[in-house]
């Protein structure tokens, strides 16, 4: 039987991203994920939380980010929620040629998790990012999903 969910609520500040990764590392100990899956989960959670830290709240506004880690017998569901200004939905398709690192985060998430949903919060505020990683279905090496074609000269 899977362990109980873990909920972590932290200030929307960069120094807490490490704590989000450590929470992932703790929860996956009870799940049969491989080493690459665990690395992918840490990456996806960091990108989602970093988006919330960077974009959810106006400068000087104290905000929070909530991370829910819900283990199942063959999966880990991850929900990252903030109560900030929210991102425009629906999201456009990933650009073919993003020219700044900010455009890479969502592309990376799409590549390393099996399912991804992004919505506004229940009261229409903020952003809810729901990611699912399945055991035994490592996201393949496909570069198509996250292809950036970044040229250093354009950065």
């Amino acid at each position: 039987m899977a362990d109980a969910p873990v909920r972590l609520c932290f200030p929307a500040k960069t120094e807490y991203l490490l704590l989000a990764r450590l929470a992932v590392a703790g929860v996956v100990r009870s799940l049969p994920f491989g080493q690459q899956d665990v690395a992918d989960l840490k990456l996806a959670v960091t990108e989602a939380c970093a988006n919330a830290v960077r974009h959810a709240y106006a400068a000087g506004v104290r905000g929070e980010v909530e991370l829910d880690l819900v283990p199942g017998p063959d999966r880990l569901d991850v929900v990252v929620e903030d109560w900030g200004s929210g991102i425009p939905l629906p999201l456009p398709e990933p650009p073919d040629r993003p020219t700044e690192s900010g455009g890479m985060g969502l592309s990376i998430i799409r590549t390393v998790v099996d399912e991804l949903e992004i919505a506004h919060g229940a009261d229409g505020r903020g952003t809810v990012v729901h990611m699912t990683k399945l055991v035994g279905r490592p996201c393949d090496e496909s570069r198509a999903e996250a292809r950036t074609d970044l040229d250093p000269s354009q950065v």
Binding site: L43, E47, A50, S101, M104, G105, I108, P152, S153, V155
Partner: peptide
């Protein structure tokens, strides 16, 4: 660990040294 922000910093470095 490295994420997209770290990659961005390295891309900046590459550009500063002429790609």
């Amino acid at each position: 660990f490295v994420d997209s922000q770290g990659i961005g910093a390295l891309l900046l470095g590459a550009r500063l040294f002429g790609s």
